[in-house]
């Protein structure tokens, strides 16, 4: 199938700005789904609110476009009631880790079989460029005219500490790598977190003088390195990419099935 056959083409061209990294992440995700040959009917995309969250409207799968920060609890409901479905939750950095931070850590703690994608452009794109918990210090934002002083979360470390059983990072520049990682994340039984660094040329790029979309992608290329690579060994300040954790731990829906079995027996 062509990648475009997975889209609700009536909504195209999409509303994302020219050069928005979120479009590339959609591109990489669709290729992962195509390569895994997942049936459209076996897949639910649940999102919150944000430019990133628009993704659920563009894909021709089951989709829920819910509330800002609340995509994971909605997805948890879907997954618990229909455990055989694949549930993927693309989120913005604000969506996932500001307003939705509490839901994020608890979904990870339960290890429910959901694939969470953090589309990290380090800014609130949709609302005009406020800083987020992933901006980090020294960033210009509408809410930080003299630059941010807040430290940022490390999405990967946070997800690991909270109990996610698959944790990875890539970037919009590394599109093929993103697809490969997403395939593994979707196949993994448990809570998978994939952080993909994205770019918002309209707000982040302009305020931080990072140039156009292509030069922002050059940053992804220059400032990251694969775990285990010589480049990372030589320069530990680079942001590491790759799969950090991939372990089998008890999955929430499977454990819940067992409780249902025990409770049903007692009733008889």
């Amino acid at each position: 199938m062509a990648i475009q056959d997975y889209l609700r083409q009536r909504y195209f061209p999409h509303m994302w700005c020219p050069g928005c990294g979120h479009g590339t992440i959609l591109n990489s995700l669709l290729r992962a789904i195509e390569e895994l040959e997942i049936e459209k009917n076996d897949l639910v995309i649940t999102s919150g609110i944000g430019c990133s969250a628009r993704i659920s409207g563009y894909v021709d799968f089951h989709s829920l476009h819910t509330m800002h920060g609340r995509a994971l609890p909605c997805a948890t409901g879907v997954k618990l009631s229909r455990p055989h479905l694949n549930v993927i939750v693309p989120m913005g950095d604000g969506d996932a880790l500001a307003i939705g931070g509490n839901h994020f850590i608890h979904a990870a703690r339960r290890n429910i079989d959901i694939t969470a994608i953090v589309m990290n452009n380090r800014i609130y794109g949709m609302t005009g460029g406020q800083f987020s918990p992933l901006s980090g210090p020294g960033v210009n934002a509408t809410t930080a005219p003299y630059k941010t002083i807040d430290n940022s979360f490390d999405t990967v470390k946070l997800a690991i500490a909270a109990g996610a059983s698959f944790v990875a990072r890539s970037t919009a520049y590394h599109a093929q790598e993103s697809t490969d990682i997403l395939k593994k994340a979707i196949q993994h039984k448990g809570f998978s977190v994939v952080e993909i660094l994205s770019q918002c040329p309209t707000h982040y790029g302009r305020k931080n003088k990072e140039g156009d979309a292509a030069s922002m992608l050059e940053f992804h290329k220059k400032n990251t390195a694969r775990i285990g690579s010589k480049a990372l060994e030589k320069n530990p300040d680079l942001t590491p990419r790759g799969i950090f954790v991939d372990v089998d731990t008890p999955e929430y829906c499977a454990e819940y099935e067992k409780i249902i079995a025990v409770a049903s027996k007692e009733k008889m």
Binding site: A2, I3, Q4, L7, F12, P13, H14, W16, P18, G19, C20, G21, H22, G23, T24, L26, N27, S28, L30, R31, A172, Y173, A175, Q176, T179, A213, L217
Partner: peptide, 13 residues
């Protein structure tokens, strides 16, 4: 195919 894989608008094949 790098142009196709990176296009944010899914416009290239």
């Amino acid at each position: 195919k790098m142009c196709e894989l990176r296009c944010p608008d899914l416009a290239i094949t």
